[in-house]
């Protein structure tokens, strides 16, 4: 019972902190991280160091992010519900895209079954976003252009050394 009271207090404090936080304003590309380590899914491949700065200099934020900090979503499908900027505070890919594509998320059992029926997992979202642009802009598109195998990856793909 004591621990419940403690937890409730923590939740209240957190809520107060969040609600009283200053409004988030649009972020400049310079403020964005220089590089992002993509290691959520490392198993067959080593983690990937994504050069965020180079990409941010070549393209505008919204080319890749569906929304930027402080701005509302641009995607027609998202904007129906997520029009207010507050919901757009999290611009990280993993903020919306779950790490694994689960069969459960795709069934009509979940509460978000009306709209979020076709949201790619993090792996799918990253690849679709990167590969789509790399194909169109003639960037590197081979698996090993971005990834390097782990020992498990070499075993999986039957690489003979």
């Amino acid at each position: 019972m004591k621990s419940f009271g403690k937890t409730a207090m923590m939740v209240l404090i957190t809520l107060w902190m969040v609600s009283s936080a200053p409004p988030v304003t649009a972020m400049d590309p310079e403020d964005a991280p220089e590089s992002v380590t993509l290691d959520y899914l490392e198993e067959l491949y080593e983690s990937v160091e994504f050069d965020h700065m180079t990409h941010a200099e070549m393209f505008s934020c919204a080319d890749c992010h569906h929304h930027t900090t402080g701005d509302s979503a641009t995607d027609d499908s998202c904007i129906r519900c997520h029009a207010s900027p507050e919901t757009a505070d999290d611009v990280s890919c993993s903020g919306c895209h779950e790490e694994k594509q689960s069969g459960k998320a795709r069934t009509s059992d979940g509460s978000n079954n009306i709209y979020h029926i076709d949201k790619p997992s993090l792996k799918g979202a990253l690849h679709l976003q990167c590969m789509g642009c790399h194909q169109a802009e003639s960037g590197p598109v081979e698996c090993l252009d971005c990834h390097s195998f782990t020992a498990a990856g070499e075993e999986r793909f039957k690489i003979k050394n």
């Binding site: 594509q101 795709r106 069934t107 009509s108 790619p120 997992s121 792996k123 799918g124 979202a125 690849h127």
Partner: peptide
């Protein structure tokens, strides 16, 4: 599948 070209579900 990295591209999520395959989607599993009902």
């Amino acid at each position: 599948c990295p591209q999520e070209a395959l989607t599993f579900g009902k």
